[in-house]
């Protein structure tokens, strides 16, 4: 049965159409937009919270979006084990909503970073990564000013012990160092999941790497994996 994907649109979202294009036209999946004031997620098999600057990043990135009516539904939806993918500002919103732990600081070097980076797959056992290989490198762009992931020492240990770090920034050889860490994130973290692996937050933009014209098609691998995993679920 074909799966339906919902892309949430907040005031200030600006990667919503990219995500829609990637899922609908490139992946060929049934996709629709969901306005942030909607409160009906019935029939949605995968939720995408796209990047952008919801509410102008006022106060803190994602802090106001958390109070949009749809977020209460997203919390209920995720509790049922259904998949939620937060990309960039979507990741920030998931952090502010408490669906994932930690917070985002300004990039260590204070610059908005917009470039292709390599990320290494650390956990191949989530709904979004099953089918990919552990250690696999993905060439995917980042585009953010506040992507410096922070969590305290105990929180980090928990993420590590529970294998919830899904992606880490690395170089083209797959090595992780201070230089390959584009924004200063704790432990080079680029993406994490919740304990049950159905909520993934990531700073890189897979929807911007789905066609050869865009310079990389590696982002497509994540969408393929999640759609395949949903099909067999």
């Amino acid at each position: 049965m074909s799966k339906t994907i919902g892309v949430i649109v907040f005031p200030g979202s600006n990667c919503d159409h990219d995500a829609y294009h990637a899922l609908k036209h490139v992946m060929g999946a049934e996709t629709r937009f969901l306005w942030h004031k909607d409160n009906d997620l019935s029939g949605i098999d995968l939720l995408v919270i796209p990047g952008g600057f919801s509410y102008g990043d006022y106060l803190r990135s994602g802090a106001i979006a958390r109070f949009s009516p749809i977020m209460q539904e997203v919390i209920q939806y995720s509790k049922q084990g259904k998949p939620v993918l937060g990309i960039c500002n979507g990741f920030q919103i998931l952090l502010e909503a408490g669906l994932l732990p930690g917070a985002m600081l300004y990039n260590e070097k204070l610059r908005f970073v917009c470039k292709n980076v390599y990320i290494r797959l650390e956990n191949e056992d989530t709904l979004f990564t099953r089918g990919l290989e552990k250690g696999e490198l993905l060439d995917i762009p980042v585009s953010h000013g506040e992507g410096n992931y922070f969590i305290d020492r105990d929180g980090l240990r928990e993420l590590q012990d529970q294998n919830r770090i899904v992606f880490r920034y690395c170089n083209s050889e797959g090595f992780i160092s201070a230089e390959s860490n584009v924004n200063g994130s704790v432990d080079s973290i680029a993406g994490i999941c919740n304990p049950t692996g159905n909520i993934l937050g990531m700073m890189p933009h897979p929807e911007r790497a789905v066609e050869p014209l865009l310079g990389s098609t590696d982002g497509k691998k994540i969408f393929e994996a999640v759609l395949d995993n949903l099909a067999v679920a």
């Binding site: 106060l59 802090a63 109070f67 952090l95 732990p101 930690g102 917070a103 600081l105 922070f150």
Partner: peptide, 8 residues
Amino acid sequence: QLLANEVM
């Protein structure tokens, strides 16, 4: 609940 994020 909103104005400060006590994580940071």
